[in-house]
Design a protein around this nucleic acid. Structure first.
Lengths: 217, 217
DNA sequence: TTCTCAATTTCGTGG
DNA sequence: CCACGAAGTTGAGAA
């Protein structure tokens, strides 16, 4: 903690005049310089950075160097308020719920969440124009393209799915497209019916239960 | 700094077991909890968050509450290593160079960077489905839609441009689309040729020289 | 508020 | 190592 001036050059370039900030340097090389406000650091380097320090004209200069891409962060402290050094013990598990992946996994584990007889084939199948969340086959053997959204599905989501489905329909006119989300905006609803696509309501909560149940087994 | 356990619930949800971390709380409500490694905080709240603290079973509980969206971050410190409090004076100017805007400006100042006879009409022109970086007219009077990228252009960038160009081609089939970037991914190159779009190599460095030269005059 | 897009995006995943 | 897409993306700018 102290007063410093900063310059950065690499993927972009920036300068910052003298002011009081907090600098954190972690043992993996990650470093973060924070101004007194805001969520994001004003300057930083990611893990893997090589830190070097030296004195220069009565100032403490801290440089973070990185290759691929080549980047240099230079912080020049002219006044120090506090220096803290130590090591932290932290081996705990971080668990994040409520991601789109949970929904995908639940559908794969229990396809009847969507409909009876559905057989998922592939998650995140590659496609010349992007990715399909899930590719499946229904009980009548038709291809089903599933686009999964964690939040209310928008017009944009419907269009994205249409991009994929229309491609499939060139070779397989019976191909279905199902947008899976907890809810659907009114505009998206209209669009889906115009594009001959379907919607299946599915809430994150249900998916979490399915995935949790599978993990117990 | 100390040992804590964390839970978060809001747009998503997460838990983190006991471990030693650094917590920064800024006066605007922004708070960041950092593990001993990595660039990103493991949990956080943005500026505007209301911070409340209380003791509970011998632990220091710090809660960050936020509305729109409703989010709660709860940090329970069971052991403290250090507490630091103070205010920082920082009113310096932050200047960032080397952005996409520099490239846009350079093209506007010196259109021959793209091709002879090009006449730029408008930067960031509105469009029903987004924004066009630059709209121009070539020496033969054809509309040219320019999509500018600071880094290597991807398939995604080509598709975004195609969205605009195909719209223009409905009324003006001769309309051109030019993707401007320092380089082009192989997949994007293929896509461009399929979609009848063009690529023009332009490096940030050249643009910076052009803009710097213009500023001197 | 909403939408749209840039970002030193970062991060993970798969080829 | 690239390429692609998600992210509690964040942040800025305009309607």
């Amino acid at each position: 903690m102290g007063s410093c001036a900063v310059s950065y050059k690499g993927r972009a370039a920036s300068t910052l005049g003298e002011g009081e900030r907090i600098l954190i340097i972690k043992s993996d090389g990650a470093c973060l310089l924070h101004r007194p406000y805001g969520y994001k650091p004003v300057n930083w380097q990611p893990a893997g950075t090589v830190i070097r320090t030296h004195a220069e004209d009565g100032a403490l200069v801290i440089e973070g160097l990185r290759r691929t891409p080549r980047e240099v962060l230079r912080i020049e402290f002219t006044a120090l308020k506090t220096i803290l050094s130590g090591s932290l013990e932290d081996s705990a598990q971080f668990a994040m719920y409520a991601t789109e992946r949970v929904m995908q996994r639940a559908i794969f584990l229990r396809p009847q969440l969507i409909e009876e007889g559905l057989k998922p084939l592939k998650i995140e199948k590659e496609h010349p124009r992007g990715y399909i969340d899930i590719l499946a086959v229904d009980r009548e053997g038709r291809e089903v393209i599933l686009e999964v959204k964690r939040n209310e599905a928008t017009k944009r989501d419907a269009l994205q799915m249409y991009k994929y489905v229309s491609e499939y329909r060139l070779t397989n006119p019976a191909a279905r497209g199902v947008l899976v989300a907890p809810s659907l905006s009114k505009e998206a609803q209209l669009l889906l019916s115009q594009l001959n696509l379907e919607f299946k309501r599915l809430r994150l909560e249900e998916c979490e239960r399915v995935v949790a149940g599978a993990d117990e087994e």
